[in-house]
Simulated assay, not measured.
Amino acid sequence: MKSFYFGGQKSGKTSCAIKKVLKIATSKPYYIATYDNSYDDKAMQQRVQNHIKERGDDFFTIEETKDLTKVIKSNETYLIDCMTMFILNNMNNGFDYIKRQLEEIFKIDCNIVFILNDINNGVIPMDKYSREFVDLSSLVGQILAKNCDEVIEVKYSLERRLK
Rank of each mutant, 00 (worst) to 15 (best):
E54R: 13
D149F: 08
E132K: 13
A145Q: 03
N120I: 03
I80K: 00
Y31G: 04
L22H: 02
F95D: 01
V151Q: 03
P125F: 01
T14W: 02
E159R: 13
T34N: 02
C148N: 08
R55T: 09
Y30S: 09
Q49L: 14
S130F: 01
G56A: 08
F114N: 05
R55S: 06
N92C: 04
R55G: 01
G56L: 06
F106R: 09
C110P: 07
N50P: 00
I32R: 02
M83Q: 02
L68T: 02
R161L: 13
K10Q: 14
N37M: 11
K128Q: 12
N121M: 13
Y31C: 05
Q49K: 14
G7I: 07
E64H: 03
P29Y: 03
F106K: 09
I124D: 00
E132A: 10
G12D: 08
N111P: 10
T69E: 10
E150N: 12
Y39L: 14
E54A: 14
E104L: 13
G12Y: 04
F60A: 07
N75I: 04
Y35G: 10
I98N: 00
N117M: 08
I143R: 02
F133Y: 15
L136G: 09
A17P: 01
D127I: 11
C16Q: 12
I24Y: 03
L102S: 08
T34E: 00
I72E: 04
P125V: 03
A17V: 02
N92E: 13
I115D: 07
I18Q: 07
G141L: 08
L102Q: 05
K23G: 06
N120Q: 09
G56C: 06
N147I: 06
H51S: 05
R47P: 02
